[in-house]
Design a protein around this nucleic acid. Sequence first.
DNA 1: TTGTAAGCGTTATCAA
DNA 2: TTGATAACGCTTACAA
Lengths: 346, 346
Amino acid sequence: MRITITDVARESGVSASTVSRVVHDNPRISDETKSRVRETMERLGYFPNALARGLAKSSTGNLGLILPNSSENLFVNPFFIEAMRGIGVEAQSRGYNIMFSFSNNEDEEVGFIRNYIKSRWVDGIILLTSRKNDRCMAYLRKKEFPFVVVGRPDKADSTLWVDNDNFHAVYDVVNLLIDRGSRSMAFVGGPEDFSVTRDRLSGYKQALSIRGLKEDSGLIGFGPDFSESGGKATMQALLTERRPDAVVTTDDYIAFGVIDALLEVGLDDIAVVGFNNTLRGRYQTPTLTSVDVNPAELGAGAAALLIDKVTRREGASDHRIIDTVLIERDSTSGILLKSGRKKPGE
Amino acid sequence: MRITITDVARESGVSASTVSRVVHDNPRISDETKSRVRETMERLGYFPNALARGLAKSSTGNLGLILPNSSENLFVNPFFIEAMRGIGVEAQSRGYNIMFSFSNNEDEEVGFIRNYIKSRWVDGIILLTSRKNDRCMAYLRKKEFPFVVVGRPDKADSTLWVDNDNFHAVYDVVNLLIDRGSRSMAFVGGPEDFSVTRDRLSGYKQALSIRGLKEDSGLIGFGPDFSESGGKATMQALLTERRPDAVVTTDDYIAFGVIDALLEVGLDDIAVVGFNNTLRGRYQTPTLTSVDVNPAELGAGAAALLIDKVTRREGASDHRIIDTVLIERDSTSGILLKSGRKKPGE
DNA sequence: TTGTAAGCGTTATCAA
DNA sequence: TTGATAACGCTTACAA
């Protein structure tokens, strides 16, 4: 038989409400009673039933995690498991559970969200990608249900979000490449309607301008997605008109495609930079210089923000910026070599 | 205001219990009533409260997933995210939710399990690794709580499990290498007390014996873990006594270490085989031949078995074997080249 | 400082 | 075929 609050109450000669108050450490219960009740709880091995509690308080202590449509790329990318870990660890440390679901498309995502909300399983929802005109966000806003998104939303009013400073990350990369001798740098991004693409493009443009280099739209390209093939095609198109000495991309997979395109026309001394510090970038030849976006911190930040919100913490802020780290590897050593400097190690 | 079952009852002129029966499609409710109630539910946007339902039925429709102590290796390994996806998709398709937690050590794992069980959040638990004398399993058995483990448990009595046929997988690998000309094949495994290590070792021995090759304990080594450094050290020790022409390992990371050790002494034509088909193996040089253990299927199988169990399905079996796939790449082309055959592509 | 009692939204048992 | 009614286990006014 399971031990309920009533058992504890009877056994320690108080009412169920008193036991409930002891469990919540209500200050209006005498220390004497508290210790007596606690002793009984201990002895009986009492543990509150989360469902009953949730029903009574209409809040569960669970958060729902929506993983995006599983284009293969995503699961090959350590970003997601790392972000999940960050979310999980933060949630656990604050007594929250995480429920997750994998979806194949936006419809399914909305379906899961709907289900989470209406069945009352969760107190809040974490979205792991920020798209433009995201139907998930639209739905959540309509329902006025607490949620947080990883990636800056296009319409940020009162929306919780966590992101890197993408502008600055690229700004720094571009400056570094200029320091290393680049004079004709290309930018190959993912789809232009992702805020992450636009933010990174701004960093690129701003840095060029500050350093007195002319912006050249012929050196700027956007792929149809974040894939290798997309990156390759975009680079090939770009190469028909220009010969850059460096390429900044917005994703390692795009960078892999870019490198492919470069090698195919015999260009093996162009600096290339990716994003997300993928495992493949670490081991393929040449190893790829990449910006680590710190996915675990992004996840943890998202969970923290959302929990603050659903617990109505005072002074809870509405967003958080996570630092990036530039990891230099061989793919940016080409220019270095030409300018006579030492090739950096890993 | 939330719509409850009572609202629907009042609105359609029946009792709450009738509505409940309609929701569960109870055959003893007239079609006429059913359609009328359904219409009201639709109109009002009724959705059952999962907490209330769980409380009344004492079952939740949730499963708990325990991710093992996060030695870095694990998250670099696509195994886990793929297994999670398999679990998630299977669970979703059967109306179950998954809660997960990340733990740093066995104590924490047991703590999470305890919490899941006692708080009654979940109906069953999925363990993502099978260790010998696992305290999680011991605890779950003691509590008689439904669970399934990915990996064959050492004590299988009435325990649900899903695994590959590790014996056969290695048996096939060894046969292939012998066909390709190997006459002195080493085995480098992880810790010997993992059933996966022992099963794979048996496959190795059996295949050698069938093909008339002598088993040589000097060619067999076990690392302290599943890491690259462990694999390297083990191989180095082995190399002081023997010069194999092929090495079968039980993990890609072990294989990476083995290759390192081989290259350091100038051996670049030894065939090496790994397990888990990691991304790194696909892109490093040389690309690594590896056995894909099909983690998504392992996960899906685990979820299916557990759900069958908690729903008391008739004829539910207690284990499931998932096929492996051998993926040949460059690391097994050395012997091939020597024997004059064509080097296989990716 | 503590107890009583109503309520959270379902399901299940027993009657009708 | 349907309805009352009592659980399920906890929280929270409101009283005392």
